[in-house]
Structures are given as C-alpha cells and as structure tokens.
Simulated assay, not measured.
Amino acid sequence: MREFLGLLKEGNKSALMATVMNAIIAIIKTIAFFITGNVAMFAETMHSIGDTANQFFVFIGSALSKKSPTEKFPNGFARLVNLVLLGAVLIVGILAYETIREGVRHIIEPSESDTWFWLNIGVLGVAGILEGVVLFKAMKEITSDMEGEQIKGLRVIPESFKNIGNAKPATKLVFLEDFVATSGAFIAVLSIIIATYTPFHSAEGYASVLIGIMLFFVVGRVFLDNAAGVLGVADKEMEKRIGELVFQETHVKDIQELMVLKEGDELHVELKVEFDPDMSIAKAAEVLDDIEKKVLRHKGVTDVIIESDKDDQIPHWKNKDVNK
C-alpha cells in the first residue's frame, strides 16, 4: 500500500486536476439535466461523466507506469499508461454514440425549449469556464515539457497546439478531451439560445450530434497514438535532436545507428558511433561516457545503450539538417 501511495504522487497532475474538476462539473450537469431534460445538457452530461472516468483511469495508469522493473517484468511498466488509455477511449466511444443517438432523436422529433433557459445557460457557462481552466493547465504542462526557453503568458496557447504531438500520452488526452469539452459547452449554449429565440427548435439536437462527433475524433486520435505506444514507436524528432548533439563531439566521424524508442513517458536510446581508427580505447571510452551523460540530460530519456566502431568511410547518418 505504501508503494502504491508513493506511485500516486508520481501520477500525471493534469489528469488528477481534470478528474476532480470534471467530477464536480458532471454532478452539476446531471442535476441540471434531471431538472430541465434539455438534450444539449444531456450531451454535455455524458461528456463530463466520460471525462471524469477517463481521466481518473489515466491518472492511475500514469502513476503505475512509474513502477520500477521487477524480476517478472524486467522491462518495467512504462507502456502501462498506453494500455490504460486504450481502455479509457472505449468509455468515450460509448458515450459519444449515446450523445449522437439522443441528438438524432431530437432532430427527428424536436420540441420547443423549456422554461429553464437561464439555468441551462448558467450551468454550461460555469462548466465551460472550469473546463477552460483545466485545458489551460494541460497547455502549460505541454509547454513545460518543451526544451529551450520557458513559455509564459498567453503564448502558452499557440505553442501548446504546435507541440501537442510531442506531449505525454496522459497530458495529450486531457488536452484533447478538455478542448472538446470547452468547445462543446460553447456549442451547447449557442444551440439553446437559437432553439429558444428562433423557430429552429432542433438546434440542440444538431449540437448534441456535433459534440458526439468531436468525441469520436478524440477516440480515434488517442487510440492511434496509444496503439503505437503499446507496440513501441520511434521518436523521429528526438532522433534528430540527439543526432545533432552527438555530432557536436568533434571525435565523432559518423553515426552508424540511432534509434529512440518511446514507451509511455520514457525514451530509450540506442546509438552506435564511428571514431577515427587511430583513436585509443581509453579516449574512445571517455568520449562515449561524455555523450551518454549529455543524452541522458534530455527530458524523458531513461537509458542509453551506446557502442562504437571504427570509421568505415561510408556515410550512414542521413539527416540533412546535420552537416558533418
């Protein structure tokens, strides 16, 4: 139990914050839906319930993935977070289906908006603000994982969109879900206003369908990313960075092999460099040790397997951005 509690401290903070916030939002929306019966509120209720369950499992998975290797599992548990996320998207997929089905039913049989206009607007408005806070927290976590300058202020927003592909799996899921949640709250509010003040009473049904489609987009994106993570995916961007770093060492003549394997939040590096044939064994060992220390300073890199060989005069490293 003590080990489990210790691992929880290592869990993804964005996922934990999102779990608590979405649980509160889900309770408020559920109460509002039972009072009003509004279909747009139903869509947002399903969304928040799914987000709460999802992000709770994501938090647990991200914590357990930090568990140290054991005799039975010598490669560790880094990919566990990918497995948990694959299971989590099933929940979102089911709720997305229910959201679309209810929206279609309302489009076919639209009903005039009820008398709970301000309750619906108030609940969705508050929910949108709270979900926006969680979204911004996820954006800050994405930019904090970037190497280089510290991103501050509103610059976090565009930079997080640019670097979402390099985000940790758990943080990426929180970002995508809360982006959809924040956008969904705005769409739901707009549909209620249209249905109340115009003859277009089926607007709430269309909003429900649109929110469901957005949820299916999250399902597809997260499923593909984490299916690759379970198999072990090469990180080409990190390979490029490490290649540039290795070539800063003047004794390195060429890179024969370089692979960066991404497992959960961890990066495993395998590297083989070429030296001058006349270099002494002692000097080569010193250079290899220095390269290993520099590579390990990169965020997420947990281990480096590095070898050397004599220069065969055949160029192997094909990255055009590195001129040796």
Rank of each mutant, 00 (worst) to 15 (best):
Y206K: 00
N166V: 12
A185V: 04
S183M: 06
Y206V: 07
I211F: 03
A170Q: 00
K162P: 03
S208P: 04
E237H: 08
V209G: 09
A227V: 11
F200D: 10
D235A: 15
I151C: 07
G229C: 06
I157F: 14
Q150C: 13
V156Y: 10
V219W: 00
K236S: 15
S183T: 06
R221L: 14
L215R: 08
P199H: 12
A203W: 01
F161A: 15
A203I: 01
A203H: 01
K152D: 15
K172T: 12
N166L: 10
I211N: 01
A234C: 11
N166Q: 11
I194G: 04
A207W: 01
L190F: 09
G232R: 01
E177N: 12
F200C: 11
H201N: 13
F217L: 13
L231S: 15
K236P: 05
E244H: 14
D178I: 04
D178T: 02
P169L: 06
A167T: 10
L231N: 12
G232P: 00
K240R: 11
R155Q: 10
P199L: 07
P158K: 02
I151M: 01
A228G: 10
T171V: 15
S160T: 04
E237K: 11
I187A: 13
R155I: 06
A234H: 12
V180I: 14
A228D: 12
Y206W: 12
I242L: 03
E237Q: 06
G212V: 03
T198M: 10
L154P: 02
A167D: 11
F175M: 00
L154T: 14
V156D: 12
S183L: 07
I157R: 06
F179R: 07
I164G: 06
M214S: 06
V189N: 07
I192A: 04
L154R: 11
S202V: 12
F200K: 03
E177T: 10
G153V: 04
V174D: 00
R221F: 14
E244G: 13
D178Q: 07
I192E: 01
I194V: 09
A188K: 02
I157Q: 13
K236F: 15
T198P: 05
